[in-house]
Design a protein around this nucleic acid. Structure first.
Length: 621
RNA sequence: GUCCCGGUAGCUCAGCUGGAUAGAGCAGCGGACUUCUAAUCCGCAGGUCGAAGGUUCGAAUCCUUCCCGGGAUGCCA
């Protein structure tokens, strides 16, 4: 596919080509310079200055003991840009010593041709490494709610980016399927069954209700009782409150007993637990599928799957002197963190840090993770610093081959309501994810009907579904990960600006042109030459060439919003091109063929990028 | 108290390893549709980048201190 080229390079990144030439020129101009030299080549912000610029002269000025402009002059004397750009002159030097570069149209054509492959410039590595991505993390007997949205959407996007980069990707959904809260629900269900209820038709909504009821029952109202005593509200209130506390402690005792039978594998208990598990997971995985998130049964790694290894793990830490006793509990101290990491309670029970440390060990040593990413709420920041530190102290972050795994908490901010407080329903409950999706799809449907009234109902529904899901996901992905954002249907479903629908529309427009060309019998353009003439064509070409670098950067920084920003740039560059550069309406056959290729290539990059983020793509809308 | 994360235009947000006059969208104003889908494009207006010091040829970006907002802080997960 790659033909021998005048530049003799395999890259498609003009910046890399320029860097190479600049570094060579700097070495030649300053042969006595010690240490490394950096070409400091970046794309120009303002196109009036050029396409690229080198800022090396300013940095070198001091080291060479010269004025930066003189340094720049010496560099361009030695600078050979043949085949890449117009020869630099004194006029290329601007300001304190910027060297401005304008690329040759032929170079852009050549590089675009090299981008125009099925891989779109992203070559798989010779020996792929393994990344384990923690995502989703639902809890038994609970619906997916906004809290799971980001963990699922961002986690899946990060996983997809690494798949795209050719890594081995292992998704792990750390399902909250163990411990006292679950035992409470099991206990309640068993009580209901004993009372003659039929549990076979129970759904997740029922479980959710029972979960809340069980929580309420076991919670007790010790706080209320204290208040009553403090304010001396009266003996009657006090007695009632005492009774409630008492019954709560009885309910709690029953739940604790149930936890014991759950842990010891009692048959009936295990059966009820399994039913809760199946009902929850069926519903949640359905929601994941609707979200276009690749989270399935095989990715579920519940807390329960660690239950057999925690005692031995803790013993291992004790034996090696890593864990120490403190007030009856066991802790691991991590350098740089004041708060010790609690791994066993004074009553002998394990904590979530214990399970997570076991998780690190499994992910590194059994699953072979070179990189572990945890896509979890930012509030867990301290927890993960502790877990990572403890696991590292214990040597659990070292692979069998001796390499050290990289551990990262890809923390994300909260989803806020219009009132700038965490998003809740009017009654103060978590918003169910399915309700959120339903409303987005319903609203999208209204707009689709408005914009494109001729569509058949079935197709309209399909489009509305994709647009609604894309709107929600794109909003979640497009902001900086660590920041909170305000959830607004109106803003995310707007069809202008940096939104999912705008990107889908841009792709649809690329497909419209190509389809129309095929229908009109225009052929042969796929292998025609690419000519970059108009400013909009050049801007589009430069944007297209950035794609592989952007995907790599997203992987390095674990920041999907960079890809969003890029795709938005690409969509606007294409829209501008689309308005200003007629494709099928033009009469020059070569220009038409070249522009068709640009449309097609843009469409493929857009579609590849959208899929890499986990967004649905439409042919029409 | 300690630690973590934020603070950029009226609103919602970008700003890559420090680089030229800090960029988008919305809202406001003014233009462009017998369409390659106007779900779009072009233009105008709008900012002491929370504050003050410091480093640097050059700071929204790095360092220090402070202010404001959010969060986390040993036996829940």
């Amino acid at each position: 596919m790659t033909e021998p080229s005048p530049t003799g390079a395999a890259t498609i990144d003009p910046g890399a080509l320029l860097s190479e030439r600049f570094e060579r020129a700097i070495r030649a101009a300053f042969p006595d310079l010690q240490g490394s030299v950096s070409a400091m080549v970046t794309p120009s912000r303002q196109s009036e200055h050029g396409d690229f610029q080198s800022n090396a002269a300013m940095a070198l000025g001091k080291r060479a003991g010269m004025k930066p402009r003189d340094v720049a002059l010496k560099i361009i004397e030695k600078l050979d840009l043949s085949g890449i750009a117009e020869a630099p002159t004194e006029a290329s030097i601007a300001g304190p010593g910027f060297i401005n570069i304008r690329l040759k149209a032929e170079l852009l054509s050549e590089l675009l041709g090299r981008l125009d492959t099925p891989e779109l410039g992203i070559e798989p590595p010779a020996s792929p490494r393994t990344i384990v991505v923690d995502l989703c993390g639902v809890n038994l007997a609970k619906q997916m709610h906004v809290g799971h949205l980001r963990a699922t959407v961002i986690g899946d996007a990060i996983a997809r980016v690494f798949e795209r980069l050719g890594w081995n990707v292992v998704r792990q959904s750390h399902v909250g399927d163990w411990g006292l809260p679950i035992a409470m629900v099991v206990q309640k269900l068993i009580e209901l069954e004993d009372a003659g209820e039929d549990l076979s038709s129970i759904g997740l909504d029922d479980l959710n209700r029972i979960y809340r009821a069980a929580q309420g029952e076991c919670k007790g109202e010790t706080k209320a009782l204290e208040t009553i005593r403090t304010f001396n509200t009266g003996p009657k209130a006090e007695i009632e409150a005492e009774l409630r506390v008492e019954s709560a402690s009885e309910a709690l005792d029953r739940a604790k007993a149930r936890l014991v039978s759950l842990q010891s594998g009692d048959e009936r208990t295990a059966g009820v637990w399994k039913r809760i598990y199946d009902v929850t997971m069926r519903a949640c995985l359905q929601t994941c599928a609707r979200l276009h998130a690749n989270v399935t049964d095989e990715h579920s790694a519940g807390e329960s799957t660690y239950r057999g290894e925690l005692a031995a793990l803790v013993q291992d830490l004790v034996d090696r002197g890593i864990a120490e006793e403190s007030d009856g509990a066991l802790v691991v101290r991590v350098e740089g963190i004041k708060a010790p990491t609690l791994i066993r309670k004074s009553d002998g029970g394990f904590l979530y840090a214990t399970t997570d440390i076991a998780g690190v060990r499994r992910r590194v040593q059994n699953l072979g993770g070179d990189v572990l990413v945890y896509c979890v709420d930012a509030r867990q920041g301290l927890h993960f610093r502790q877990v990572f530190g403890a696991a590292r102290r214990a040597g659990y972050t070292t692979k069998a081959n001796g390499t050290e795994a990289r551990l990262a908490h890809a923390a994300f901010g909260m989803v806020m309501g219009e009132d700038n407080t965490p998003l809740k329903t009017r009654s103060g409950e978590n918003v169910k994810l399915t309700d959120l999706l339903d409303e987005a799809v319903q609203r999208a449907g209204v707009t689709v009907a408005e914009k494109n009234p001729d569509l058949a109902a079935e197709e309209r529904a399909k489009i509305a579904e994709a647009v609604g899901i894309a709107a929600i996901k794109y909003t979640d992905l497009s902001g900086e990960r660590a920041k909170d954002y305000v959830f607004s249907f109106d803003r995310m479903l707007a069809f202008e600006g940096n939104t999912g629908p705008y990107l889908l529309y841009a792709f649809v427009r690329t497909q419209g042109v190509v389809r129309k060309a095929r229908e009109g019998g225009v052929t042969g353009w796929e292998s025609s030459g690419l000519t970059i003439g108009e400013a909009q064509e050049k801007a589009l070409a430069l944007t297209l060439l950035r794609y592989p670098g952007v995907v790599r950067a997203v992987g390095e920084h674990l920041e999907p919003h960079r890809l969003c920003a890029y795709l938005y740039d690409l969509a606007t560059a294409y829209s501008s091109f689309y308005e200003n550069c007629p494709v099928l309406r033009g009469d020059d056959e070569a220009v038409r063929a070249s522009r068709l290729r640009l449309c097609d290539l843009t469409g493929r990059v857009l579609s590849d990028g959208l899929r890499t983020l986990g967004l649905p793509v439409l042919e029409r809308m």
